[in-house]
Design a binder for these strands. Structure first.
Lengths: 191, 191
DNA sequence: CCAGTCATGTAAGATGTTACATGATTCC
DNA sequence: GGAATCATGTAACATCTTACATGACTGG
């Protein structure tokens, strides 16, 4: 159900095509929730039939072609409120890195070292992307934010920014915890 | 493929029934990789047909009933080594908590506060379970470890303990990072 | 006119989740 | 004798992932 919620949240900023949504899932929102294009289009159509979204054909180009823009309905807004208000059922743990770490005796020290280096590199990249999002939010150049600033009053927009900052700070915190854990593991390996 | 690897790793400690495996996935290993019973039994049979495991009927009870014990074959051990040695492709981010946090403007402050409290409670429980595993490993009372100590020489066993400690320390580190993040969010909420 | 982006999909397969189902054994 | 545990599944569904497919438009 989270893909659906992510789409509602995203489109709540203003009307958007499936393509627009897909780009955001590959970019900013993708730091928090990634979705494949092949999932997005069918889900949007399903959400339309369920009344959470409405479509509007928008002329595109010169040859009378159109693209389909989706917009959140009042029912969609209700579903969004509902999702944000309902406690999550936390997913059962499924962590390949920790699983593999527990069985590193099945490989050699050099490979183990390399795994932790990779882990650090991966989370450094993740942290950097999150920091970039934080920068864009702080200096108001964030693209989706721009849409929101047009559609919502100033005070509410400030609130929104605060929550998005919280989310990305969480991504950073997570990444940094992973990095220091991996560094400690490297130290233990050498020790 | 991780379920398969988790099963190989688990059974590498010594022969085990599907039921035994399921219990461990619900207990110690479950802190790192959870699997449903309904997934385990079919996967074990599949792994047997692929030559990674062999079965042995073991008498059980008085009425001539048997249970099926699985054991890792040399091919299974090769597959395990291979999995532990191969770099992971990191899964694309999919974090419901962060996603929801980014859109908390769709609910009220009290609900938001409650969400962060829940987050703290969830990760405190996770951390405690991981600490318990660390204790059991440190004082050598860990059940799967017992099996390994019987089947492997002392020096190797010490190595194994070290890697399992690393894994559970990672779980703790993660949980603690989540807790302090949530606390910061609570502080921000209070303004 | 060609490369890159915009726009929209289908199909097959892997994996994860929920719900249901059954019977033996052991321990109190 | 009854509850808890041991033991083993099946079926339906949801979700995620990979691979493939097509055509219009825009800017250099």
């Amino acid at each position: 159900m989270s893909l659906r919620s992510a789409l509602l949240a995203l489109i709540s900023a203003g009307p958007m095509t499936g393509y627009d949504a897909a780009k955001r899932f590959a970019g900013s929102v993708g730091n928090v929730w990634y979705a494949f294009d092949s999932q997005i289009y069918p889900e949007l159509r399903k959400m339309e039939t369920e009344g959470l979204l409405v479509t509007r054909p928008v002329p595109w180009g010169t040859k009378g072609t159109t693209k389909t823009e989706y917009e959140v309905t009042p029912e969609g807004r209700a579903a969004l409120t509902d999702w944000v208000s309902t406690p999550l059922t936390y997913a059962l743990e499924r962590d390949p890195v920790r699983l593999r770490t527990a069985y590193l005796e099945w490989t050699d020290a050099e490979t183990a070292r390399q795994h932790f280096e990779d882990h650090i590199a991966h989370h450094q990249a993740a942290a950097e992307q999150a920091y970039e999002q934080i920068r864009e939010l702080t200096d108001r150049t964030h693209p989706t934010l721009q849409r929101r600033l047009e559609n919502y009053p100033e005070a509410e927009a400030e609130q929104m920014i605060e929550f998005k900052l919280m989310a990305y700070r969480g991504v950073c915190a997570r990444a940094e915890a992973e990095i220091s854990w991996a560094r400690e593991c490297l130290a233990t390996l050498r020790g």
